[in-house]
Structure formats: C-alpha cells, structure tokens
C-alpha cells in the first residue's frame, strides 16, 4: 500500500492540533451548559470538528500514492526571510528605523541565491529614504530614524 506522505502529515497535524485545542479548552475554561455556554464550549466544539476533519484528510491519504506537485521551499529563503523579520523586531525599538531596515534588507537578501552586497545596500538606502518620506513625514508616525539604546 502506498501513502500520500504530504496528506498523512497534514492529517496528523490537524488531528493533534484539534485534540490539543479541545482538551485545553475543556480542562482550562468553563464549558457551561448548552443554554448558558462557558468560554470553553465554542473552542471545545471547534477543536473536535478540526480533529474530525483531520481524519478526513488522513484516511484518504492511505489510498493514494505520493502527490506529484509537492511544492518545495528553499530552506535558505525560509530561514533568511524569517530571521530578517525577527531581526527587524529586535533592532527597531532599540536602535531606530534605519538600522532596522538595514538588518531586514541584508538578512532577507541573503535568502536569494544571487545575493550581491551592492544591490542590497542600494535597496536599503532607497527604502530608508522612502520610509522616512512615507511613514515619518507623510503619516506622522513617531519613529526615530536612529536612536541610541539607553
């Protein structure tokens, strides 16, 4: 028997998440009665339905072979882009907008195979100017372009 690994994994994840949500809701929040529902009742029901749908994804996976269109993702792009956004979140409140943009642009550009430092620097400069014009001057957002961490 062949198994569609993608749907097998997807179904299992749905099943586990659904059960987890239902158990958490039932244990931590009051369920109440059907007439006067507590805060746990609605998520409890939703968790159970999600788990059942997980089964509906999981069971047919056993009757199918591998999917042909399993879209791959470049691990390099995944890591660099996520890290660049997290980097922005860390740098922005401490050092201001310009350093945050620089970190974001450099880290994310590394995710592309043909990374060139000159291109990244140019994009960073252009985006700093644009952001200043749009967000600070245009929309009056109180963001310092550069600040010293205190």
């Amino acid at each position: 028997m062949t198994v569609d690994k993608r749907d097998f994994l997807g179904g299992v994840l749905l099943l586990l998440t659904g059960i987890g949500v239902a158990v958490h809701a039932a244990m931590q929040y009051p369920l109440g009665t059907l007439q006067r529902m507590g805060s746990g009742m609605f998520p409890f029901g939703a968790g159970i339905i999600m788990a059942l749908l997980g089964l509906l994804v999981l069971i047919p996976a056993f009757m199918r072979s591998e999917p042909t269109d399993w879209r791959g993702v470049s691990p390099r792009a995944l890591i660099c882009v996520l890290a660049s956004v997290a980097g922005f979140a860390l740098v922005m409140p401490r050092f201001g907008l310009a350093p945050a943009i620089a970190v974001l642009v450099f880290l994310s550009s590394l995710g592309d195979r043909d990374f060139r430092i000159v291109n990244a620097a140019a994009v960073a400069v252009v985006m700093c100017v644009l952001s200043y014009l749009i967000f600070v001057l245009g929309l009056n957002l109180p963001f310092p372009m550069l600040r010293m961490p205190s």
């Binding site: 882009v81 660049s84 956004v85 922005f88 979140a89 922005m92 907008l97 945050a100 943009i101 974001l104 642009v105 994310s108 550009s109 990244a120 994009v123 960073a124 252009v126 985006m127 952001s131 967000f135 963001f143």
Partner: peptide, 9 residues
C-alpha cells in the same frame, strides 16, 4: 526586501 520593509513597518 522592499515588500518586507513595508510589511514590518
């Protein structure tokens, strides 16, 4: 990278 800048800000 420009799209990401707009997303973050």
């Amino acid at each position: 990278p420009a799209i990401l800048v707009f997303i973050c800000i």
